[in-house]
Amino acid sequence: MTEFTPFLSLLGGALIGLSAVLLMAVHGRIAGMTGILAAILPPPARDWGWRAAFLAGAVAAPAAMIALTGATIPFDSPVPTPWLVAGGLIVGIGVTYGSGCTSGHGVCGMARLSPRSIAATATFMVTTALTVFVVRHVIGGL
């Protein structure tokens, strides 16, 4: 069980949205984690500096929140390591061919009403739900 957190999730979502708006207003860029991460991997894009800085900020934020406020950030990874590795490989391959993930298509693309992003988001929401159903209720959990 995880606790239903409508207020925190709405607030967190609004901050994700604020970040996307600021990245567009200041840099003219889509806040898609797939695109930003892929562009700093070798061979890196020519313009990799701002992307590395964005990623550093994204990683530092939870650590800073814990250090400054003493808050705990719930984290529970219930999946065995071999499946985590398989899941990571599959996600990496899928987002590369699909040109984006939850942040790029699901937030930035949907906000622009991009038909490609709406189609991508609808597709991965359905396959994610189907996968969770098969893993938890057909196989009986990992």
Binding site: I16, M33, T34, L37, L55, A58, V59, S77, P78, V79, W83, L84, A86, G87, G88, L89, I90, V91, G92, I93, G94, V95, T96, Y97, G98, S99, C101, T102, S103, H105, R116, A119, A120, T121, T123, F124, M125, V126, T127, T128, A129, L130, T131, V132, V135, L142
Partner: peptide, 23 residues
């Protein structure tokens, strides 16, 4: 686009991590 997104969802459903959450 569609095949890649479908595959991404399978990985997300197995692991519970998407790129924007994992970083």
């Amino acid at each position: 686009l569609i095949a890649g997104s479908a595959v991404f969802g399978i990985g997300w459903g197995i692991s519970g991590f998407c790129p924007g959450g994992a970083i």
